[in-house]
Design a protein around this nucleic acid. Structure first.
Lengths: 330, 330
DNA sequence: CTGAAAGCGCTTACAG
DNA sequence: CTGAAAGCGCTTACAG
């Protein structure tokens, strides 16, 4: 079949011997057409290479089958993986992904305008934030919005996350059980809910058990983790247990520690968060907390589709559990 | 400014005291409007939160400011990086990215229909292939098509690549100069032009210098490289020089070799291709051939914009050079 | 430089 | 279940 330019419903109608409205109905889900005319129309469409013009369609329905996906950190493999899962899940439902990359933590106005002007069916924001003003725009246009792996600063939104607090408590218990007597938490960017929650859960348990700890502030990148690792060595402050706020940073820490001849897990135990593919590589074999991406994506998609069907604008926060993946660094 | 639903050019026209056509002209690049009315209209638009409806627009112009980007291997960090650069470059030009992920080597029909129905301004295909029939669809619709980092099987297309052949010749010369007397080439998926060209350039030089070599076939993944590395060790056939068709696979090879106590670069020298960020990590420090992503993206964008402006459908192949990045594995 | 009007390709009441 | 007709929000000749 060759899709030709300018083949319209009218052309198909003529060939099939029906009205243009009927052709439209055949391609519009939920409209009433008899099985017989449907077949006739479909055959004609196939012959002419017809596909409905999405723009004409959207002009009327005032909505597209496009989901805007806003992403910042493509350097952390976690996010490309998320992107892939979203693309797959939404494709199955007939939706496409408009990919918006933002360099800044806060999404810029022109990106928002793009999303709004293309009348996207919904917006997913992974590792960026939105100003309150902008979120009003989405609400005013009844465009559902989900924060993925990040809680919105304000109460009024919907987010899907791993239960970072609980996970980090588990991690603390696990490390204590493994015999760690002094610990370090290496944070990601401090303005992220993920980093703060992970710290909170971890620290609470340490305090309860009267375990000494120290916090290093880093930035969710490999380089950041590496630098922090070096710093600990230089300061002669390598503890027996380290919880790093994400895997990519943990790999940096691991690199620095190993380079300095610190034996892992004997001298120091390291645990990350995410369970990115790289963590499973035999050369890394990083113990970590798995974020169940597929489950998180499913939850997001489910909410999104419900909101697309009937907009409610409900806020809330879905938390999935994830699980500890024990490997050779502990 | 809050963008409100249903604010149309008509509303702006009324507020500004002009005709709807004039409002349209203000927002349509290249149309004639006096500076004075333009200001008036812009002020009214700002007040009402008006943005032109992209669909109504596209319905007439029969084109969008959307570029379709088809990508398969998001697990190789090279491609997320490419995605980011494209998103950035096109955003600057006012274009958005429709991200199409394909699981299969060959793009599926429904993905093509999506691209076609959304009347994308152009399509970029990174690591996937297209059937000849489908490319006809694009041609018939005068939609420019670029293969990025892959040459089309057929002659009739436009592609942007690193000069893999020349690069691989350099790599062979370099390894020979470093004293390697027997070599291995580890290929990526064999149906990719990149892997074949890299092999060809490499092998030609080795033959000229009468250097013994062996080829292993792998798949462009870390796991594939790791397995191949293990295999070489098991077969007791670790050579003094290894050229791996891409970095992520080279890291796998490196992992396997190091795990087996093979000292690098003393016993064996390893060189990759791409120069992904990870290769520069101190723990890896992989010597590699850099693909100049930014330059490749620029070339692609330039061709794309020219074709969008005036479609010619010319075929061709732009090859950029790249450069050797020497690190600790050689 | 600006306005009135036609029309892009659909969806969707409204009749029948 | 199907057709004729209105209309979504724009762009673009055509006049003036």
């Amino acid at each position: 079949m060759i899709v030709r330019k300018g083949v319209t419903a009218k052309d198909v109608a003529k060939l099939a011997g029906v009205s243009q409205s009927t052709v439209s109905r055949v391609f519009f889900e939920g409209a009433m057409v008899s099985e017989r005319t449907k077949k006739k129309v479909l055959a004609a469409a196939e012959e002419l290479g017809y596909g409905p013009n999405e723009f004409a369609r959207s002009l009327i329905t005032n909505r597209t089958k496009i989901i805007g996906l806003v992403m910042k950190g493509v350097k952390n493999p976690f996010y490309p993986h998320v992107l892939k899962e979203f693309a797959t899940a939404f494709k199955r439902l007939g939706y496409s992904i408009l990919f918006v990359h933002t360099n800044n933590d806060e999404i810029q106005k022109d990106d928002i305008m793009t999303l709004l002007n293309y009348k996207v069916a919904g917006v997913i924001i992974t590792d960026a934030t939105l100003s309150l003003k902008v979120t009003e725009d989405f609400k005013a246009n009844k465009i559902p919005l989900v924060f993925f792996n990040r809680k919105a600063g304000m109460k009024d939104f919907f987010s899907v996350c791993t239960n970072n607090y609980e996970a980090s408590r588990h991690i603390a218990e696990f490390l204590i059980q493994k015999g760690c007597e002094d610990m370090v938490y290496i944070s990601g960017n401090h303005d992220t809910s993920t980093s703060r929650e992970r710290e909170m859960g971890f620290v609470e348990v340490l305090k309860k058990h009267h375990v000494h700890y120290k916090k290093y502030t880093s930035d969710y990148t490999f380089a950041g983790g590496y630098t922090t690792g070096q710093q600990m060595v230089t300061e002669n402050k390598v503890p027996s247990g380290i919880f790093v706020a994400n895997d990519i940073m943990a790999l940096g820490v691991l690199g620095a520690l190993r380079e300095n001849g610190i034996s892992i897990p004997e001298t120091t135990k390291v645990i990350g968060f995410d369970n990115i593919d790289m963590s499973a590589w035999p050369t890394n074999s990083l113990t970590t907390w798995e974020q169940p991406i597929v489950e998180m994506v499913e939850q997001t998609v489910r909410y999104m589709m419900a909101e697309i069907k009937e907009y409610s604008g409900v806020s809330g926060n879905i938390e999935v559990q994830g699980r500890l993946v024990e490997r050779k660094t502990t």
